[in-house]
C-alpha cells in the first residue's frame, strides 16, 4: 500500500510556516506604514521608516560598527581556531580531551559573569569602551562553533587521504592546504556562518565591554525597543538579517548536508 503524501506535506507546510512566518511578518512590517487589524496585509506601503532610520547617524554608525566588528572577530576566530581544531583532531597531546571539554564547560557558565571578570581585566588594559576590546570579547563567543565543528570535521577526514598525498611527495603544508582544507570546507563554512550570526547578535559582551562608546546593532535595537515603534524595529531587524543572509549565500556553495552533518560529528 502506498502511503498518501498529504500527511508529510502538512508537516512540511506547517514547519515552513513556523519558520518563514515570523520572518515574513517582520519584513512586511519593515515596509508597512499602516497595518491594523483585521487586515491581513498592510493597507499602506512605503519606505518611509527606512529613510527615517537610515537618515539618523545614531543608526548608521552601529550598523557599520556591527558589520566591521563581526567580520573582524569571526575571521580572526577562524584564523586562530581552525588550525587549533586541526591539532585537536589529528595530534595526540596530554589534556586534549580536558581542553576540548573545557570549551563546552565555559559555555555553561553564565556569560554575563564571565564578561564581568573580563571587563575588570580589560579596564586595566584600557580595552573597555574600545573597538578592539569588543572584537576580543566577541571572538570568545565564537570559540565553541569554531573549535567543535571543525574538530569533528577534521576528524571525519580519513587519515589515508592526507597520507596518500604526503606519500606522493607533497609537503605537510601542501597536504593541509590542498587536501585537508577542501575536504573540511563544508563544515568550516557552516562554522563560519554560525559564528558570524552568533557574534552579530551578541549583546552581553558588547554591552559590558563596548558601552558607552561602541554601540552595535543589537544594542541599538535594545535601546530603541523602549520607545517602541514596530516599523523602526522591523527595519533594524531586516538590516541585521541582511548580512547574515549574504554570508549564508556566500558559503552556500561549500555547504552540503553531508559536509555539515560531518562537521557536527553525526
Amino acid at each position: 500500500m502506498k502511503r498518501s503524501p498529504i500527511g508529510g506535506l502538512l508537516i512540511l507546510g506547517s514547519m515552513a510556516l513556523a519558520m518563514i512566518g515570523p520572518i515574513a511578518t517582520v519584513i512586511l512590517w519593515a515596509f508597512a506604514i499602516k497595518w491594523r487589524y483585521p487586515h491581513l496585509l498592510p493597507t499602506e506601503w512605503g519606505m518611509k521608516y527606512w529613510f527615517a532610520m537610515l537618515g539618523r547617524e545614531t543608526v548608521i554608525t552601529p550598523v557599520l560598527t556591527s558589520l566591521a566588528l563581526t567580520s573582524i572577530s569571526t575571521t580572526a576566530a577562524a584564523v586562530i581556531c581552525w588550525p587549533a581544531a586541526y591539532a585537536f583532531a589529528r595530534l595526540k597531546f596530554p589534556g586534549r580531551q580536558v581542553m576540548l571539554f573545557s570549551f563546552i564547560a565555559a559555555q555553561a557558565v553564565p556569560k554575563f559573569a564571565l564578561y564581568v571578570s573580563i571587563a575588570v581585566v580589560f579596564l586595566r588594559l584600557g580595552l573597555v569602551g574600545n573597538f578592539w576590546g569588543v572584537v576580543v570579547v566577541q571572538m570568545l563567543s565564537a570559540v565553541l562553533f569554531m573549535i567543535w565543528i571543525p574538530t569533528a570535521a577534521f576528524r571525519g577526514i580519513p587519515p589515508a587521504l592526507e597520507e596518500a598525498a604526503f606519500d606522493l611527495g607533497a609537503s605537510r603544508l601542501r597536504v593541509f592546504v590542498q587536501i585537508t582544507l577542501p575536504q573540511a570546507l563544508p563544515a568550516l563554512a557552516a562554522s563560519y556562518v554560525l559564528a558570524f550570526v552568533s557574534i552579530l547578535f551578541e549583546v552581553d559582551g558588547a554591552l559590558l565591554i563596548g558601552a558607552p562608546t561602541v554601540t552595535t546593532m543589537p544594542l541599538l535595537l535594545m535601546s530603541l525597543s523602549a520607545q517602541i515603534i514596530v516599523q523602526e524595529a522591523a527595519v533594524l531587524c531586516v538590516l541585521i538579517w541582511v548580512p547574515c543572509f549574504i554570508v549564508l549565500l556566500l558559503t552556500r556553495r561549500f555547504m552540503t548536508a553531508k559536509g555539515i552533518a560531518q562537521g557536527f560529528g553525526v
Binding site: P158, A160, L161, E163, A164, A165, F166, D167, L168, G169, A170, S171, I179, P182, Q183
Partner: peptide, 17 residues
Amino acid sequence: QANRRPTAMVFQSHALW
C-alpha cells in the same frame, strides 16, 4: 620522510580525493 622516499602506496580504501 614518506614524501621523499621513492615509494608510492595504494591504500585499501583507495583514498581518492
